[in-house]
Amino acid sequence: MAKWGMVIDLDKCTGCQACTTACTMENDRMPGENWQDVLFYTEGTYPNVSMKWFPRPCMHCEHPSCVSVCPTKATYKDPNGGFVLVDWNKCIGCKYCQVACPYGVRFYMDERAVIQPDIRTVFPSNNDRLWDPPYKGPQDDPSRGVGIQPHGVVSKCTFCYHKVSKAPAGAVDLDEDIPELKEHVPACVRVCPPKARFFGDLDHPDSYVNKLIADKRGVRLKDETGNKPQVYYLSGGAAAAVPALRSMTGPDKA
């Protein structure tokens, strides 16, 4: 079975946030629930200041700490594909996974709305979901954290499970340029204008993602935590590099 992974070429990423927007639209996320985000940082002090950005989805780690800490096994590693998913029927909303995730990519959306008006009151749900957007995708699989979540649970990026898991058997690289596979490409990968994102089978020796990782020395974010992300970053030094620090603002972080 495939072990799906993503490669993000930081030399190509323009920080346009098309990935963030596409993810939000595809997965019906709420404002502030950025399963996929591009983080912007300022570095240095005036006059030597530069702005950098860093695209950051869930890493779908090989050894995810969010899975280890979950007291109900609601968060689990899907052996078929290597997705890290949340079973909303088991999640108790203890938020331990949020605390234990080194990448800050989990969301508990029952909290105070980040933008007013509160979209939950604008589009209230009548079926115990958090909200009911007027336009939403047909996918709904609470046991895999796909669709709109019920109250009191944690949500996260699914690597577009509803698309990727239906890819034809034997597919190695899910590339939007391959017509028969484009519907199975994660939304953030499919819309990336400079084609900075690649998605494929990390367990297949001939996959393009493996070739990129090998040729351009792909690195994983915060690898020292032992989580072993399935998202790799390429950085030739022309643009943003994988940040060493979590908070990169302030004069002492230059």
């Binding site: 280890s68 800490v69 007291p71 108790i92 909303g93």
Partner: peptide, 25 residues
């Protein structure tokens, strides 16, 4: 908790031996 009543059933039946919270509860 988001789902306190569910926790009363979900934790004991999960056998999540890797989780410190499981052992604690």
């Amino acid at each position: 908790l988001g789902h306190p009543l569910r926790a009363l059933v979900a934790i004991p039946t999960s056998f999540a031996f890797e989780s410190p919270l499981y052992w604690k509860a």
